[in-house]
Write a protein that binds this DNA or RNA. Structure first.
Length: 773
RNA sequence: GGGCGGUUAGCUCAGUUGGUAGAGCGCGUCGUUGACGUCGAUGAGGUCAGAGGUUCGAAUCCUCUACCGCCCACCA
């Protein structure tokens, strides 16, 4: 059999891709500890920790793009001889997942989480997540992801939980985590607090009311919150109200009868807006809360956690706020207190996950203090010395400002700094059940010391931060764990090192030694973090914060931000539009290689990209083109062995060879600069329009009628260039290149393997040597 | 309100440090039984949003304008 008969048919990705993936997986080479001795291993490592996709469903095109970029980097670096680790994982995505399962249970069984109870709900969620994780893992394999499955992690598994508990305690002990009564974003629908970043604003057309409030006219868009308003605030410089003194008391008629109001002067009031006078509702408004804090004013809760009015509302108590608004206005109107109404448009805060309308509430929550100065024990961060005084905000700023972390594309650095400047303390507690439970225990009931310990009451701790349930030394009371869980981004913030053996091996990890227990020394800081620009703040910044604080290290050197994948017309892919493309369907229809190529070409970092089936089809054709190029070359070089050090090239071939080397050098530079879109396009263009259209065309004549020297020179050129192109294309289209490689190097009657060390293409040496990194 | 992008061929987009505009798809014409019809050859098509400036030279740098998009923000 002269040529493998597979070449007689068009390339078949559906048959090939799963088979090739198994070949790779069975080789063990995804695990850097298993790379063969023949492999010219550098001592330097290269590592990426995969951004864990949410375990809420299936992978979409955005994941496919991320995975492709990461796999390109990993395969490239592996071929360059780095000890290359790509560590995969999934995210428990606390709120999103719990909301999803709760919704499903409610739909099917009409039960809420309160019917089920904590343990039962968690069991249901675990089952749901387990199934999704399995699906997602197999999808990643379909896409060709060459990650080390032996190190797979989950943000909520035992090692990650240990990391989270340890970190929480460390930050608490350092005074960087505190419990405080602060105004938070309360989602009445999800019954939880959410972070600022989880809010989406929706434009709402409403009415802006002016009410008579004693001698003043106050403006508000929320009459239903005004029951407890007993402070009237104006700017200290506002001449219109100069005759009123700060602290002055006034008797006036209000919603439910006469009240005593107090004048407060504060610069937060905008003299230009409304009447320049407002009353405040500190319990339910951030700005009002701040004013109340500054002047040490009373704060009263008006609305409960379910969005209903409390007894302070008098006759309106128990009413939903949405219903109360009109009623309150009606009553004020009847009392002759409505001065004016005008149409008004503002932004309504809603919860991203549940769609609930945010009602700010004052609550006891756990916060990470981003401004507090502390002494960092050991720091390798540029510009922050061990033992120096710094703050979490400063760590975040400095890591990027010093150039130690580079963000691609660069202009996102500006966005990053802008965000840090406006950053406030990070509320990390969530009132949901799914997630890392806050490792805090409360002494309840209060300590009643056993006989003989009465004098120890002073030493008894009411709050203990610990992983395990503590015991009181002096009495028999139980400690009760805080019912809340942690913001999912807290555990995500530890991801680059909780996956590499922190804290279990933090002290013992040794660089240069193989094995997961040494990963922290071998692979941290990681090299590249590849993710979507939309989670720059949520996640990237938090990783920099936590890694900088706990390890005194940056979590990664380079941040590569990809854009959103949209449909052919530039619309977001969504279920309601029905315009989504499923990466698994793509693999089935066109092959994963085609999908990868289509996602990469024309896609610059930080910019959204449009994709259509037409585009993907085009790259399926490319795979087939390459297949046929290989077929032609192998058919026409039967019995010819590829001499790696062939020197007797004809002039024409020497020139072509130099051109090919230039291209490969150029492409290598693009790889180093993360310009994958350019590298792929250049290779595509060369393969199709130079190598195939021109070089192979003219080779037909040479092979048919050239002299012996010309023929052998051309044959060597073709073999050599094919080999190099397969290598250079492998990171982009790993399946078809590997398949061609394996067919080529299968020993047959007429063909010997390329070299004795022939093995999988994925661990061959990159065609361009030398130090370009 | 603040910040950040974008505006290049019919469509979707590249254009890395300034050196007389590129790709894919689509379109026109022609061709080809053995690498490939998932093909080949060839062609049409752009005052690079507009104005001004810097420069020997600008799609690329600077300023302004217009339109589009995204992010952030406690104007009650």
């Amino acid at each position: 059999m002269p040529l493998n008969e597979k070449f007689l048919k068009p390339y078949n990705p559906q048959e090939t891709e799963p088979r090739i993936y198994k070949l790779w997986e069975n080789s063990g080479f995804f695990n850097p500890d298993n790379l063969p001795k023949s492999y010219k291993l550098k001592t330097k490592s290269f590592s990426i920790v995969m951004p864990p996709p949410n375990a809420t469903g299936v992978l979409h095109m955005g994941h496919a793009l991320g995975l492709t970029i990461e796999d390109i980097l990993i395969r490239y670096k592996r071929m360059r001889g780095f000890k290359t680790l790509w560590l995969p994982g999934t995210d428990h995505a606390a709120i999103a997942t719990q909301a999803r399962v709760e919704k499903e249970i409610y739909k099917k069984e009409g039960k809420t989480r309160h019917h089920l109870g904590r343990q039962a709900l968690l069991k249901r969620i675990d089952a749901f997540v387990e199934e999704n994780r399995h699906t997602m893992t197999s999808q990643m394999k379909t896409m060709g992801a060459s990650c080390d499955w032996s190190r797979e992690a989950f943000t909520l598994d035992e090692p990650r939980n240990l990391a989270v508990r340890t970190m929480f305690k460390k930050m608490y002990d350092d005074g960087l985590i505190y419990r405080g009564r602060r105004i938070v974003n309360w989602d009445p629908k999800g019954q939880t607090t959410i972070s600022d970043d989880e809010i989406v604003y929706q434009e709402e057309k409403t009415i802006f009311y002016y009410f008579k409030y004693g001698p003043f006219t106050i403006g508000t868009s929320r009459p239903e919150t005004k029951f407890g308003d007993k402070y009237v605030v104006m700017h200290p410089d506002d001449k219109r109200y100069g005759k009123y003194q700060d602290g002055q008391k006034l008797e006036l008629e209000w919603i439910n009868g006469p009240i005593t109001a107090t004048v407060v002067k504060d610069k937060a009031v905008d003299m230009e807006f409304g009447s320049g006078v407002m009353t405040i509702t500190p319990w339910h408004d951030t700005a009002d809360f701040d004013i109340a804090e500054r002047h040490k004013l009373d704060k009263e809760q008006i609305i409960d956690e379910r969005g209903k009015l409390l007894p302070i509302a008098g006759e309106f108590a128990g009413m939903k706020i949405a219903d109360a608004r009109a009623k309150v206005v009606e009553k004020l109107r009847a009392k002759g207190l409505v001065a004016k109404e005008e149409p008004y448009t503002h932004n309504l805060a809603t919860a991203e996950r549940t769609g609930g309308i945010i009602e700010p509430q004052v609550k006891l929550q756990w916060f990470v203090d981003v401004n507090k100065k502390f002494k960092i024990k050991s720091s390798k961060l540029k510009g922050i010395k061990s033992g120096s005084e710094t703050s979490l905000k400063e760590i975040m700023r400095q890591a990027v400002a010093s150039g130690e972390i580079k963000i691609i594309p660069e202009h996102f650095e500006k966005t990053y700094f802008h965000w840090i400047e406006n950053l406030r303390d990070w509320c990390v507690s969530r009132q949901i059940w799914y997630g890392h439970r806050i490792p805090v225990w409360y002494h309840e009931p209060k300590c009643v010391p056993r006989a003989g310990h009465e004098s120890d009451i002073e030493k008894c701790k009411e709050i203990i931060v610990a992983g395990e349930k503590p015991r009181c030394e002096f009495c028999d009371a139980e400690f009760i764990q805080d019912p809340d869980t942690l913001d999912t981004w807290f555990s995500s913030g530890l991801w680059t090192f909780s996956t590499l053996g922190w804290p279990a091996f933090a002290e013992t990890a040794t660089a240069g030694k193989p094995g997961p227990e040494n990963d922290l020394a071998n692979y941290h800081p990681t090299d590249v973090l590849e993710t979507g620009y939309e989670i720059l703040f949520f996640w990237v910044a938090r990783m920099i914060l936590i890694s900088g604080y706990a390890l005194g290290q940056i979590p990664f050197h380079t941040v590569y931000l990809h854009g959103t994948v949209r449909d052919a017309k530039g619309r977001k892919m969504s279920k309601s539009l029905g315009n989504g493309i499923d990466p698994i369907d793509v693999a089935k229809k066109f092959g994963a290689d085609a999908g990868r190529m289509a996602l990469i070409i024309g896609n610059t970092p930080g910019t959204d990209t449009n994709i259509s089936e037409d585009k993907i089809r085009g790259y399926k054709h490319f795979g087939n083109k390459l297949w046929n190029i290989a077929r032609f070359i192998l058919e026409n070089t039967e019995g010819v062995s590829h001499e790696e050090n062939f020197e007797k090239y004809a002039d024409r071939d020497a020139k072509l060879l130099a051109e090919a080397q230039n291209l490969l050098t150029d492409v290598t530079k693009d790889f180093e600069a993360c310009r994958f879109y350019l590298a792929a396009e250049k290779l595509y263009h060369y393969v199709w329009h130079e190598f195939a259209d021109k070089i192979i065309e003219e080779s037909k004549t040479i092979i048919k009628s050239g002299d012996e020297k010309e023929k052998s020179s051309r044959r060597q050129f073709l073999l050599r260039t094919l080999e190099q192109l397969l290598k250079a294309l492998h990171p982009f289209i790993p399946f078809v290149t590997e398949e061609i490689w394996s067919l080529w190097h299968q020993p047959t009657a007429n063909r010997q393997p390329l070299t004795a060390k022939s093995n999988l293409l994925m661990i061959q040496e990159w065609p361009i040597a030398g130090s370009t990194e």
